[in-house]
């Protein structure tokens, strides 16, 4: 997890999605999350996920960190599915839902500077909750970097090297230190906010859209995803034979996006 990479890509990116309105992107992400929550069809859910990845490809964000960040929830969803899903298909659906939602949120974070994300959320959430989310987001990345440092330090000092048990002990010790550090960090971050003028509500100016057409497209795509999820849930008996269609359409979109991206990057290299 590298906050610098997310910040850099979100701030310096110039793709149409980067220039779209933060509120519209947040709304589109919410629609995708809603579709993942509503759907009971694995193909539809995977199709929505592929469409989101296609949008990420077209936004020229670095795919490896994007996919690895969005993949974190898959681990926890898989554990949950293993413990509770009645069959493999249900388990796959649980994992797919988690990954689809994560892909949408991480795409939002990679294409929108985070104060803009939380400025959009502030409209619908109580001030304290919006501000807490803002600081939690920052803290997760700060703590991620700190944990990396602590694990390295604990392994070096304990001489754990690649020894699995010693290494696990060192990691647990590092986690313990991290909890203490987190308490300390929370206090310091609050102090800094207070010193810099925070008094109960972060003031962040909302950026206007520089790509209204992309706003409309993002909302339409999100709405389509939710409509498809609802349709296959409500009329699943009739639509079940056609479940492959959204998946195939999303896969075709992804292939087209990859071709466009690599054609552009190849063109840039040759130029």
């Amino acid at each position: 997890m590298d906050v610098r990479l997310v910040d850099t890509v979100a701030t310096s990116g110039s793709s149409p999605l980067h220039r779209a309105s933060p509120r519209t992107k947040a709304a589109a992400a919410a629609l995708v999350i809603a579709s993942a929550a509503v759907t009971t069809n694995l193909f539809v859910c995977t199709g929505v996920a592929l469409a989101v990845v296609a949008a990420a490809v077209l936004s020229r964000i670095p795919l490896r960190p994007y996919l690895s960040l969005a993949g974190y929830p898959a681990v926890f969803a898989a554990l949950f599915a293993w413990a509770s899903a009645p069959d493999a298909l249900s388990g796959a659906l649980i994992v797919s839902k988690a990954v689809t939602a994560a892909l949408a949120v991480v795409l939002l974070l990679f294409t929108t500077p985070y104060p803009q994300v939380f400025a959009s959320l502030q409209r619908t959430l109580p001030g304290l909750v919006g501000d807490a989310l803002f600081m939690t987001y920052r803290a997760i990345f700060v703590l991620g970097e700190k944990l990396d440092d602590l694990i390295v330090a604990a392994r070096l000092r304990s001489g754990a090297g690649r020894h699995p048990i010693r290494s696990a002990r060192a990691t647990v010790r590092a986690l313990g230190n991290l909890v203490l550090y987190a308490f300390d960090l929370a206090q310091r971050e609050y102090d800094i906010l207070a010193l810099r003028g925070y008094s109960g509500r972060l003031a962040v100016p909302v950026r206007r859209s520089a790509a209204p057409a992309v706003d409309a497209l993002a909302l339409a795509a999100g709405t389509a995803a939710l409509a498809a999820a609802l349709a296959w849930r409500v009329a699943w008996r009739d639509l079940l034979p056609y479940s492959w269609m959204p998946l195939a359409a999303a896969a075709a979109l992804l292939v087209a996006a990859l071709v466009v991206r690599f054609a552009r990057s190849g063109g840039t290299r040759h130029a």
Binding site: D7, Y114, P115, I192, R196, Y198, S199, P205
Partner: peptide, 27 residues
């Protein structure tokens, strides 16, 4: 104020927004 650990003091994603943080909080 400038504290010793400036890393923790920088909150915003661009230098401009970070320098603007205080004035914006003061409305």
């Amino acid at each position: 104020v400038v504290l010793q650990n400036v890393d923790e003091q920088l909150l915003m994603p661009t230098v401009f927004d970070d320098v603007a943080f205080g004035p914006r909080q003061h409305g």
